[in-house]
């Protein structure tokens, strides 16, 4: 049981970017998706049928959509940290029952990488593309915390002692102009030990999720 849950989590952490370079063709994906139609739709605000509505599934925690009767295996995977990304969905679609043993989804899988990328592109639609490498181990809720810009400005004064505000990145990277998501990911990764740097590990150790959101909100505003 433990192994079943662990495998997808490791996949999330590792985020092997095998498929990243592959461009998906959403139109072709729509055609391929017809074989999923009996159980799933993929429409903005669409209903869930036997299986969940799959529109914008990237970034969603596995087994977390309300009103869906998931198999216990999928729920447990989500509780164990599995988030659907290009990489995890790619792994799942290739071999659903191998990726999450105990999943009730009776689908043999898509052996062809291009097919999987096309389906993922179709499911994504206009929703954001989410890669494992960007997510780390964070739940999507982390990205929706509303930051306190003024508090973020105060906290940022600790950053700018080392990180230049004027665009020079000799020795120390520039942090203005980072996408808020990338900023949040980086600070969480340092704090939680997924990235190593003596100063950053120490500085982030005391930051709460809300303080990281506040910093991200402030630095985002700085660039407007």
């Amino acid at each position: 049981m433990v192994r079943r849950v662990l495998l997808p989590i490791l996949a999330t952490l590792a985020g092997a970017p095998v498929a990243l370079a592959q461009e998906g063709d959403a139109e072709r994906g729509a055609v391929l998706f017809r074989q999923c139609n009996s159980c799933h739709v993929a429409e903005p605000d669409g209903p869930s049928r036997t299986g969940p509505n799959l529109y914008g599934v990237l970034g969603r925690t596995a087994g977390a959509l309300e009103g869906v009767r998931y198999s216990p295996a999928i729920r447990e995977a989500g509780e164990g940290g599995l988030i659907w990304t290009v990489e995890t969905l790619d792994g799942f679609l290739q071999d659903p029952r191998g990726y999450i043993p105990g999943s009730r989804m009776s689908f043999r899988g898509l052996p062809d990488l291009q097919d999987r990328m096309d389906v993922i592109a179709y499911l994504t639609g206009d929703a954001p593309v989410v890669h494992s490498s960007e997510l780390g181990r964070l739940s999507p809720e982390i990205f929706t915390i509303e930051g306190d810009v003024e508090y973020g400005e105060y906290l940022s004064s600790e950053c700018v002692a080392c990180h230049s505000a004027s665009g020079s990145d000799e020795g120390i990277p520039v942090i203005t102009g980072l996408e808020p998501e990338a900023f949040i990911l980086a600070l969480h990764d340092y704090r939680d030990g997924h990235r190593e740097h003596q100063v950053m590990t120490t500085v982030t150790a005391r930051l709460t999720d809300e303080e990281i959101a506040s910093l991200a909100a402030y630095f985002a505003e700085l660039e407007e």
């Binding site: 700018v160 002692a161 080392c162 990180h163 230049s164 505000a165 004027s166 020079s168 990145d169 000799e170 020795g171 120390i172 100063v199």
Partner: peptide
């Protein structure tokens, strides 16, 4: 050492 060079530029502009 490179980090210290970056820090010098940043703190003096701060």
């Amino acid at each position: 050492y490179r980090e210290s060079l970056g820090w010098y530029d940043s703190i003096t502009s701060d």
